[in-house]
Design a protein around this nucleic acid. Structure first.
Length: 549
DNA sequence: GCGTCTCGCGCG
DNA sequence: AAAGCGCGCGAGACGC
């Protein structure tokens, strides 16, 4: 049973049930009910308890934060905007009305923070005709040869949207005190006036200027710095740290130290703390499906780039712990499943890279890792490019899978993930986000770049699907087991591509660990059935995030 | 002054 | 050892 929600122009909301009396028949639209805005949360909560419907709405960000604020959680939803993007672009819906349709009202970016009504503000109207849009989507899915995959994918994507709101709502536990201490230790005390350099960095600048004989050099200006470095005899073409590292010169050490500190100050310094941490919580704005491959993005706060240097500030509440879990070597294992490469599956019985060494393909674990990444990214040069052919000899099926994806891309074709998310067509409008040399389609040298993109798309995108299923299964199991605890229940607080963090009361951490592990197994089954591929997770129960890994 | 681009670096 | 995917962000550089 589905219930489609629509916000009415003059306030209030319309609830329209859509059901399927007999399996295999077309969905039937029932009688709508209209409720006042003030009664909406109660109406949702009541139906959630009684029938556990799948809530259908235009954009999770427009509905769910307000419900969460009123204490209403829902188990399942359909996010029409996210599913529209998936289905419209999917190769698996060719022939449906949605496939490749002209851009319409559902082709919009996720509601921004400013668009989301606060608890006491006017609520924006819905996107038009959600019932019609929902029925179009159902037809696209049900007429598809990839129906099973699309059902799972749209469900997982929508559940991700719920989790994103829930994680924002709860926030990541963050100790401003610890963060400030980390900054003070690394940089010196917070300067009294913003814009001033902390004392350690002033000392760095003095050393740099002395070493280069440039008393008024601004080390923050790459152009100035490059000029001065070259004048001092360093044959560098850029000021990047990997290039600087290769030179013996008194400036190198203080300059790299300065860059490290400057980075910390600018990206995650006191200004960041002031802007993003409130009452012991960091609440990033997650953007599910924000990456072409299906990965999440964030807007503001840089939550997916949290540097290791500040992770000690993520501290569990007293009496609570953090259960930190990451999927080991996720992408190579995804490739194993996609390609049904039994040799690679065997290598992945334990540590995958050690298994590759044991197969005789390469000599060391480090080589195995570099070779594997090179295969998935399309490396052609350097150590990585040199090692890829050795991998190809032992694991021809896996290699052929990514090679085929690359050839398709080079020829201007579309590739798809396991569940049915398709790559953008070369030159498509979505490529506005891509580097300029890649948005003109596969011509000349650009074809190779597009091939590397499609090569990686199938792996990264399917890994994102696995991760969504893992997180969704974890969320469901946590709720089933701990819902009775209310606010005291363990809950997801962070998601980072192949890693999840659960904030959990210490006394149930062991149970949470088991849930996270079982959910990884469940996600593997959902995607790959009984194929011989394993998805082991590394789990740590810690007081602060820096203690994991 | 304002918007956009490039660089460099953090993360997976 | 530094070329091979996907991002977000801030500062400086640049054009108007």
């Amino acid at each position: 049973m589905f219930i489609v929600l629509r916000r009415l122009p003059d306030g209030g909301a319309e609830l329209t049930p859509v059901g399927r009396p007999q399996p295999g028949t077309a969905p039937v639209v029932g009688e709508s009910v209209v409720v006042d805005e003030a009664d909406l949360a109660m109406a949702v909560a009541t139906r959630e308890v009684e029938t556990s419907p799948r809530w259908v709405w235009d954009d999770t960000r427009r509905w769910y934060p307000r419900l969460l604020g009123l204490g209403v959680r829902v188990a399942r939803c359909v996010d029409l905007r996210l599913c529209h993007a998936l289905l419209r672009g999917s190769e698996a819906t060719v022939g449906s009305e949605l496939h490749g349709a002209a851009a319409g009202p559902y082709d919009v970016a996720q509601a921004g923070v400013d668009d989301v009504a606060g608890l006491f503000e006017v609520v924006p109207e819905s996107l038009p005709d959600p019932v019609g849009e929902f029925l179009r989507q159902r037809r696209a899915i049900e007429s598809s040869p990839g129906r099973g995959g699309l059902e799972l994918l749209t469900t997982a994507e929508s559940t991700g949207a719920l989790v994103a709101c829930e994680m924002h709502h709860r926030g990541i536990p963050w100790s401003a005190t610890v963060h400030d201490r980390l900054l003070t230790e690394a940089l010196g005390p917070r300067p009294a006036r913003g814009g001033e350099r902390p004392v350690r960095m002033r000392d760095d600048v003095d050393e740099i200027r002395a070493a280069l004989g440039a008393p008024d050099l601004n080390p923050d200006s790459p152009a100035d710095l490059l000029k001065v470095l070259q004048r001092a005899g360093l044959g560098v073409a850029s000021t990047s740290k990997w290039e600087l590292r290769r030179h013996e010169h008194p400036v190198v050490e203080p300059l790299l130290r300065y860059k490290r500190r400057q980075r910390l100050l600018v990206a995650n310094g006191w200004a960041w703390l002031d802007a993003w941490v409130r009452q012991g919580r960091f609440r990033p704005d997650y953007v599910p499906g924000g990456v072409v491959t299906g990965r999440w993005a964030t807007s503001g706060g840089g939550a997916l780039q949290l540097p290791k240097a500040v992770r000690a500030a993520v501290v569990a509440d007293p009496g609570w712990t953090l259960v930190v879990a990451d999927a080991s070597q996720l992408e190579p294992r995804i490739l194993t499943g996609l390609s049904r490469d039994v040799a690679m599956a065997a290598a992945g019985d334990g540590d995958l890279y050690e298994g590759i060494v044991a197969s005789g393909a390469v000599a060391t674990r480090a080589e195995a890792k570099v070779a594997m990444l090179g295969a998935m990214y399309g490396a052609t040069q350097g150590e990585s490019g040199r090692l890829v052919p050795r991998l190809a000899r032992r694991f021809p099926k896996a290699m052929e899978y990514v090679e085929a994806a690359a050839r398709t891309g080079e020829a201007g074709g579309v590739v798809s993930t396991l569940l049915g998310r398709s790559s953008p067509r070369p030159g498509e409008a979505v490529a506005a986000d891509l580097p300029p040399e890649m948005d003109r389609g596969p011509v000349g040298r650009d074809a190779r770049a597009w091939g590397r993109f499609t090569r990686n798309f199938v792996v990264q995108g399917t890994a994102a699907e696995w991760a969504l299923c893992w997180m969704g299964a974890t969320r469901a199991a946590l709720h089933e087991r701990f819902a009775g605890r209310g606010e005291g229940a363990p809950h997801l607080v962070f998601f980072l591509h192949d890693e999840i963090v659960v904030h959990s009361p210490a006394d149930v951490a062991d149970e949470v660990v088991a849930i996270v592990e079982q959910s990884a197994v469940a996600a593997g089954r959902l995607l790959f059935g009984e194929a011989p591929v394993r998805f082991p997770v590394t789990v740590a129960v810690v007081d602060d995030y820096s203690q994991a890994k």
